[in-house]
Design a protein around this nucleic acid. Structure first.
Lengths: 332, 332
DNA sequence: GTGAAAGCGCTAACAC
DNA sequence: GTGTTAGCGCTTTCAC
């Protein structure tokens, strides 16, 4: 594994390193014969430009990082592809990082983004505070947060109408199945979980009801979390007639737990999810859920990030909100 | 956005850059008061080590790349997490890259890995030839291929018993539903598709049958591909009694197409998938499929890559094969 | 149209 | 236990 540098190519082609550099960058005209010669020599020698050296020199990496809580939740891969598509069009490379919802990992990746001098990061996390994100931005990394805005910081945000979506779903359940509507939420460390809880409670209050603690269980945003949550609810002396789940993974787990107990959905217990992942239409009964658009969210994150990374935009944080709407299917 | 370097810290702490460097790396002892002072100053100044400069100097990036065909196929995120887990334990960072099964993207990412001087890459592709992978290895990037081995190259490989799994699934279908067993495969550019086709044909031949072209359709490895494939098969003058699908996404699409036509599975048409993704037990009927272990495959890829990146192993390619076995559920 | 030379921020001989 | 110094491979100003 020889290491061929621009100097080797220059020497062999009988030109200066400067010229070789310009042949590759196109930053200034080079006589066409010289250019052809350099290109031939480069191939002959197996020259591969060193992006590390280049990044050090130009102080840019042309790379962005996407930090996500759970790559195995089908919502996120679609989201990631959305941002990746727009970033690629802007000649940026994208690194996808998975925190598994762990606090240390969230910090580690953010740190990584800073020390690698990445140009930007799209972040979704449960633990890191807005101030910490501000540190990242201050270090010169463009940042867009998938979630709440960061007041007073040059950080863009993109989110769905989580609270409203949760409220609508709950109101729908209340209207159709009466007042015994419970909630299975994800970890309450997640801002998105708090938003959905708040929407749920708001719907209850609007209907003149008082949220009862036993009807609000908090689990992981996974199928297993959903099963556990449903089990807890069903074991109550007075189990609910319907349950709103903070995401589809949870809802599917809940569905399975109901089936395991021989309960029919929605006849015995109604279930609504959130996200509308592919699997929502694969399970039986099909999931009534709140449509969240991972691709649209991703595309917006990409646009906002791109405009900051290129320097085209340098103002205060912009906030994009995408409507999430109830999709009624079979499970409620 | 000031740019604080190791020199700034050194100057302010009244020591040499060398000492600052060693405070952070621990590569040589530093008097404890000096150390404390340097650390304090670093924080005061907001110093962030520049990993780009470091990488250029030490000729290592401590980073590996995973290149995958379709991040929205649930099989791959699980696989990726498997490799990531072992790499993280080895202090390596992992970039996840999605080619969307596109030829240019496969090449672009591989190229990227070389020019960024990444330490290693775990690759799964449809288009890139073994020789091209060899180029990557020659450029000094450790590589492990998720799929076939690369004869004579210092490239490790990890794969499932795709051919045997396909053969077993087909044989099972043949035994239970008679000779009219069809195949819906993914793009034939994918080596894995060819292996599964060959297993399917081998089972047919073992049963004294001759594969008929009309019963072999090739689509994408997606739900849509599965629906289209199933539609084509069902539109045949003489439709099959059972179909083996090259992955679960295809099988689920096929299942849905059958449902759309009012056909009952497996009573009217039996379906078997491959992979055993989560969704296999979410659909109705539950999918009979061939279990492929994304986490085990991932872990092995991680181990092999790690041993090469650290230099602990430098021999010829090692090939790991993981058994894939039939799981009988309801769809066949 | 082309080249010389400085320097991006860091590490690691080598010296003391 | 600490410092001097020479690069890692590239881009870009300045000069011709």
């Amino acid at each position: 594994m020889e290491r061929i540098t621009i100097e080797d190519v220059a020497a062999r082609a009988g030109v200066s390193p400067t010229t070789v550099s310009h042949v590759f960058s196109g930053h200034r005209p080079v006589r066409s014969e010289t250019k052809a010669l350099v290109e031939r020599v480069a191939i002959e020698l197996g020259y591969r430009p060193n992006a590390v050296a280049r990044s050090l020199r130009v102080q840019r990496t042309n790379t962005a990082m996407i930090i996500l809580p759970d790559i195995t939740n089908p919502f996120y891969p679609v989201f990631a592809r959305g941002v990746q598509d727009v970033l690629r069009a802007g000649e940026y490379h994208t690194l996808l990082c998975n925190t598994d919802s762990r606090e240390e990992e969230e910090r580690a990746f953010l740190d990584e983004a800073i020390s690698r001098r990445l140009d930007g990061v799209v972040f979704m996390g449960y633990w890191v505070s807005p101030e910490e994100l501000l540190d990242v931005a201050t270090a010169g990394v463009a940042v867009v947060n998938l979630g709440e805005g960061v007041p007073g910081a040059p950080i863009d945000s993109v989110r769905s109408t989580d609270e409203e979506g949760a409220r609508d779903a709950t109101a729908f359940l209340l209207g159709r199945y009466g007042s015994a509507v419970a909630l299975i939420d994800g970890t309450m460390f997640a801002p998105v979980a708090r938003a959905r809880t708040s929407g749920y409670q708001r719907a209850l209050r609007s209907a003149g009801l008082v949220p009862v603690p036993e009807y609000e269980v908090s689990e992981e945003f996974t199928r297993e979390g959903g099963s556990r949550g449903m089990a807890a609810l069903l074991d109550l002396a007075d189990p609910p007639r319907a349950v709103f789940c903070a995401n589809d993974q949870i809802a599917i787990g809940a569905l399975q737990e109901a089936a395991r107990r021989g309960l029919s959905v929605p006849a015995d217990i109604a279930i609504v999810g959130f996200d509308d992942i592919d699997a929502a239409t694969m399970v039986r009964p099909n999931l009534t859920t709140v449509r969240n658009s991972p691709d649209a969210l991703g595309a917006h994150c990409g646009e906002l990030l791109l405009s900051r990374m290129t320097g085209e935009f340098t103002g205060p944080g912009r906030d994009v909100v995408i409507p999430a709407e109830l999709v009624i299917r079979e499970s409620a």
